[in-house]
């Protein structure tokens, strides 16, 4: 399970093989022929530092740190275009998500800007069943520290007010889904299935 510690050595396959075995969809990664269809299909490809195609090459090259610090993991919108179009049948979306999950588990997430946002987003969804613009942004801003949180909030005050004026951001208590209990149950079940799959996956 341990990731190879030696990442300065280019093309040490330790990391790649760890990814092949431990990351969801990773077993297909060796099939990549670097055609670029994934990165070229990505609707937010311009917003990614590396994009999925290069990320896969970096996995092969053993560039563990750079892979886990890449914003590619967090900017993915799960549209699945890359997966559908991959000429080699690689589940690119799953691989990116899987690497993101590993980044969280290995503690890289706190260092990555987009990962913080993802964390705030997830917090809102699991608590209310919805995203509340105010709370998501607030939680994200304050994850940088209290002072930084205040500063970032003030910087964006004008936008926030504008949104309120246009009815794009509501004021008052956060909206919730009607059956918050049911939501909890769904999430618990999902976590259970995920854990079970992981164990099953490790066995096969």
């Amino acid at each position: 399970m341990a990731v190879s510690s030696d990442t300065s050595q280019k093309y040490d396959l330790g990391f790649a093989r760890w990814v092949y075995q431990n990351v969801k969809g990773g077993d297909k990664l060796s099939m990549c022929m670097q055609c670029g269809a994934c990165s070229g299909s990505c609707p937010i490809g311009t917003e990614m530092d590396h994009g999925p195609r290069k990320l896969i090459m970096m996995v092969r090259a053993g560039m563990k740190e750079a892979v886990f610090q890449s914003n590619t993991l967090w900017n993915c919108t799960s549209c699945y275009r890359c997966t559908v179009r991959c000429p080699r049948g690689i589940p690119v979306t799953h691989v990116v998500q899987g690497l993101a999950a590993k980044a969280v588990a290995l503690g890289y997430a706190s260092e990555v800007d987009t990962a913080r946002f993802a964390h705030s987003f997830w917090w809102s969804v699991t608590h209310f069943g919805r995203t509340d613009e105010r709370l998501v942004t607030a939680k994200y801003y304050f994850s940088f520290g209290f002072i930084a949180g205040i500063k970032k909030s003030l910087d964006n005050l004008k936008i926030a007010l504008g949104m309120v004026m246009k009815g794009r951001m509501h004021v008052g208590l956060p909206h919730k889904v009607s059956d918050n209990k049911g939501l909890r149950a769904i999430l618990e079940k999902a976590t259970e299935i995920e854990m079970r799959d992981k164990q099953g996956g490790a066995e096969s």
């Binding site: 093309y11 790649a16 060796s30 099939m31 990549c32 092969r60 080699r88």
Partner: peptide
């Protein structure tokens, strides 16, 4: 340029599947 024309593309895939790393 990796040149496995025709059905030899299958051979290329087989090597990738086995874990051979191709570097352009």
């Amino acid at each position: 340029e990796l040149r496995t024309p025709g059905t030899a593309e299958e051979f290329y895939r087989q090597a990738q599947k086995a874990g051979v790393v191709f570097i352009k």
